[in-house]
Nucleic acid binder design. Sequence first.
RNA 1: GGCGCCGUAGCCAAGUGGUCUAAGGCAGCGGAUUGCAAAUCCGCCAUCCCGGGUUCGAAUCCCGGCGGCGCCUCCA
Length: 516
Amino acid sequence: MQVYNTLTRRKEPFVPLHPPRVGIYLCGPTVYKPSHIGHMVGPVIFDVIKRYLTYCGYEVTLVINITDVDDKLIAESHRRGIPMAELAREMTEDYFHNLEALGVDTVDHFPRATEYIPAMIQYIQKLIDRGYAYVSGGDVFFDVTRLPGYGKLSNRTLEQMQGEGGEAAARKRSPHDFALWKSAKPGEPSWESPWGPGRPGWHIECSVMSQHLLGQPFDIHGGGLDLVFPHHENEIAQAEGYAGEPLARYWLHNGLMRAADETGKVGGRHTRPLGEESAEAQAAAKISKSTGAQPFRQLLERFSPEAVRLLVISTHYRSPILFSDQELHRQEERLQRFYRYFQRFEQITGQSFYQLEAPTRRTEGELDPGQSELLQHVAQLRRRFLAHMDDDFNTAGAIGVLFELLHELNRFVQQHQLETRPDPDRVEELRRATVVLRELSGVLGLFRRPVQPKAQAGDQLAQQLIQLLVDLRAQARKEKNFALADQIRDSLGQLGIRLEDRPQGTTWTIEQKKGG
RNA sequence: GGCGCCGUAGCCAAGUGGUCUAAGGCAGCGGAUUGCAAAUCCGCCAUCCCGGGUUCGAAUCCCGGCGGCGCCUCCA
């Protein structure tokens, strides 16, 4: 297994520091506004990474931090006239709600910055004692010139930096120094410290909390590409100044989500509608009546969480993802292919796909295909899937293999006419092959539970009425009254109820709500 | 200005020195099946931004263009 390490700018073999244990720290959100789709990228990717490492036999601890004290939180709480803590609670709840919808349930700890204030103060004091930080007018700054390696993660030198130092520049020795502790202005939430009342700077929480929960150094540190500088660079500076050894061994950064109708990343400072220059993008903007930065909750009213998960992992994690309604619809279509097969499978075997017991460990999933041509193919596809995942978590390639596997299963059903004349041995072959689909899709966090029909299937009465119409139509077809049969099908189709005449009878499904 | 990433079919997207006359999906086209559909199956649908170079061999490496994107102090 190899992973791309931002620190070295190349792929390296993945070797944990203390196998089988693996520690992962991912930078989470600042909870001052409802989270948007961009905030979901990291959690979904690292959810998959943890699932895969666990599947490979590692014991993984995954930490995502919650930044609940920060300038933007203060500004927003003033604007809304509520305490910062209340704002943070509300927005953290929103964040958790979204993660749950997406099936991100592998996170072991969600440490909050405000729970670590005393630890941060101690940490900062030690940095001062060791000469890496200095006090200046109630603020404490990190002196970047004291750490020779500063800039190694983002591959830049102090000379190359153009920053002016911001509003605190006058109190800094160098404009590139960054705040460890900020003194409180009147009306701002604050904590007592040796340097007067104030609050921690942005970066210090991650160094402190990761060390507390995972130790130092730990294995994998993740985050969005936009955090490489300054956030992660500064985390490294603090941690190395504090402990004299590296913070993390592998640095993994995910690409950013972009809205098709805007430039720049979703929710970024520089987002603006595209100008006249791009007619194509303008067309895309028309299709998408949304901007990417809309609250994720709103997006979930129009698209299934599983489509969002599929969108996120259909691109290699280091690449940017282009986001639009059209793209999300496409993912819904892709999912339907699997859902239809699950239905087919259940009709043939009488068993729900979702109830199949699949191996949860890579070594347990080795197949013995015997003479079965199907299982031989499936074993090969499984190997290709794992090879993709072993190569820097190439989920996009792995999903391609999943579709090939699906195709293989459908073909088998077709070839052996399992829907009309099921041969028990063939059905058992199919079942064993489908278990592999369950096993591999589970690694990606896909198809873990039956989908909730997006448009509620209605109450029992509605279902009975639909069934009544389907039965009437069956009668009409029997009598060759196709005009009437087609009218029923078309009319129900208008209502979003799709009928399919299959060998075993007619099935009906309620189509996904359309967002466009 | 500095650092870095990217440019593969109508669209999305794997592949990064030979098994690539390039995976998978969406859309489209032909056929099987169907009363007609839907679904499924079979088949079709790209020579990899442009120009040089290295190599027996390049989508894959190097150089030069053109185009897109990110970061350069608080943004996942």
